[in-house]
Design a protein around this nucleic acid. Structure first.
Lengths: 151, 151
DNA sequence: TCCCAAATAAGATAGAATCCTATTTACGAA
DNA sequence: TTCGTAAATAGGATTCTATCTTATTTGGGA
């Protein structure tokens, strides 16, 4: 919404090019879904994207939004915040700690870090308000999954 | 499961004390739910906690697990990994970036940090496997919510 | 222009989390 | 110890996000 037109247009151009390269069809729906996302800095959910796109394509279904965003995420054209249809997970470890998340098996391991303990809140983050806590999420392949990795 | 007995017992003692202080009733179910969580380092979900607790309390319902964990989380006795029943959110910003999350309104803002860009993966994280990416989540009150804060 | 695999719409379905309500229980006070 | 009551529970109903199914449409190469 508040993004400068040229940023959006640059993203759209890169998107079209990436789709051609990856042999993803440039359907009317796909383009508009990406445009709605590329025009926002709000990390929107499917419902709000649907609301926006419906102005141009009144019959578009939520499933099309889901399907396209999932496809684009698999191709590295958009990113997903939040755990796709995973369950809530709990932890009795209330001390400050960070997470190592295996991108293959989903296993989460806690760790603490002396170095990080003394890192201050980044100035860029403080610009948004009053930081309270800081949590690092390291993604990678855990030792077990590392062995059976194909790449 | 693999946690030393004394760690679990220490957590149980602290839990009982905290409940007395906060006037939370020490029901059989609540105690066993917490014990199951405090005995694990797997960040278990409700289903696996339910499986464990059912050995001691065969009639316990999943709702009781949910209700207690939610209550304990509100009182700062356990923590929740993942976004509590929130929707998937998407982002067209594919460059490396971090998140500032407002704990009140839930708004997410992106930021990049020159300092953090060059921080290496912590040794403690590398011990678990092969790190690929690193993402920082700063939680706090955004400027807008900061004003109307009561505390 | 033709062809067909890919994509879509719309409704059905799955499944996690929450709500509802009658019953039970923890625990403070008498 | 007993009693009273607000809090907590069990179990089924409900909500709601995300995915699946299937008949139809369409992008884009030949």
């Amino acid at each position: 919404m508040t993004l400068p037109r040229e940023t959006v247009e640059a993203r759209m151009a890169a998107f079209r090019e990436a789709c051609l390269l990856k042999r993803l069809r440039l359907t009317h729906q796909r383009i508009e879904v990406f445009r709605a996302l590329a025009s926002s800095e709000e990390h929107p959910d499917v419902e709000s994207i649907h609301r926006v796109v419906r102005k141009r394509i009144p019959t578009i279904s939520p499933d099309t939004i889901y399907r396209n965003l999932k496809l684009l995420a698999e191709h590295g054209l958009v990113s997903v915040a939040g755990m796709s249809h995973e369950r809530l997970r709990f932890d009795a470890n209330m001390g400050p700690h960070h997470h190592f998340v295996c991108v293959k098996c989903g296993r989460i391991r806690d760790f603490t870090s002396r170095e990080l303990q003394h890192v201050a809140f980044p100035a860029e983050a403080r610009a948004f308000g009053a930081p309270v806590s800081m949590h690092l999420e390291v993604k990678g392949f855990c030792s077990a999954c590392q062995k059976g990795r194909k790449t």
